[in-house]
Design a protein around this nucleic acid. Structure first.
Length: 275
DNA sequence: TAATGCACCTGTGGGC
DNA sequence: TGCCCACAGGTGCATT
């Protein structure tokens, strides 16, 4: 499941490999993954261009083109964006392939098809609902503890787990890193947001940033389908302490971890260490 | 306005 | 072995 660390890993790899390589052609096997324009138009626009820069906002990848267009990619749950040598066979569920000069193919693949692609004329992302009201970037150096605490002003009664998953509240966190962050901060995922003390919010800020940084250093988490931009698995899944570990011993107190549904998401936590 | 529920989608694994 | 069904979850939209 590509969350901030996975998307950041892909971004970094693409910036190392695909920039300035001319796009010779685009093959589109499933045009329905393109949400705001026709497949034929996207193909016509992109052919002859090159990628000049790859950025990230939350879980969205932003690929700038030499023409000034911006390609925006959200990987959903099982989306992959990776490059391989053009001679290699495509895997099932490959929906778009950019054929780059130099014998490299950039492939967009998505088994469950929750991902989506947008082509923007001028780089303005206002037209994409998910980007319009995106919360702050948790690893932005300018995002201070004071900024984080200010987000909680007027916070309601929803569980803190639900709040961390809300992309309008904070960008880029999904189920894996919400669970790992709350464990790191020793906060129970069911706790109403308004019940958190200043000290707990402060702990959460530090925990969130530490967990995300560690995950990026290890190349993200490969649960189900995630691969990086080289088609390789990440390494952080081996460092998970609670996510997907229901009934396994808590790394701290050795009591069995518990699992429950919060806003429809499976949440793993230690009922003894997370208060 | 905030919180909650559901549809979308397909591979996987458990139960029978 | 084969079939059926629940489950996984990010996002947008509908409902409460």
């Amino acid at each position: 499941m590509p969350e901030l660390p996975e998307v950041e890993s892909i971004k970094r790899e693409l910036n190392r490999t695909i920039l300035e390589e001319k796009i010779e052609d685009v093959e589109i096997f499933r045009g329905s993954v393109i949400k705001n324009t026709h497949a034929d138009y996207l193909r016509a626009v992109m052919a002859g261009n090159s990628f000049t820069w790859v950025g990230r906002r939350g879980k969205y990848l932003l690929l700038s083109l030499s023409s000034g267009h911006l390609l925006v990619v959200h990987l959903g749950m099982t989306g992959q964006l990776y490059w391989q040598e053009a001679a290699l066979a495509l895997k099932k569920h490959s929906h778009l392939v950019w054929h780059l000069k130099g014998g490299i193919s950039l492939i967009y693949r998505d088994v469950r098809r929750f991902g989506k692609i947008f082509l923007l004329e001028d780089g303005r992302t206002d037209s994409i609902p998910g980007l319009l009201k995106m919360g702050p970037e948790p690893l932005d150096p300018a995002f201070s503890l004071a900024d984080w605490l200010a987000l909680f002003e007027g916070a309601g009664s929803s569980p803190i787990k639900a709040k961390l998953l809300d992309q309008h509240f904070i960008a880029g966190i999904g189920n894996i890193y919400a669970d790992e962050t709350l464990y790191e901060a020793r906060i129970n995922p069911h706790r109403p947001v308004k019940s958190l003390t200043r000290a707990e919010k402060t702990a959460l800020y530090g925990a969130m940033r530490r967990v995300l940084k560690r995950a990026i250093e290890e190349g993200g988490s490969s649960i189900s389908d995630y691969v990086n931009a080289r088609g390789q698995k990440g390494g952080f899944q081996d460092s998970h302490r609670v996510y997907g570990k229901k009934d396994q011993p808590c790394p701290t107190c050795k009591q069995p971890l518990r699992s429950s549904k919060i806003v429809g998401r499976t949440s793993s936590y230690c009922p003894f260490c997370q208060l």
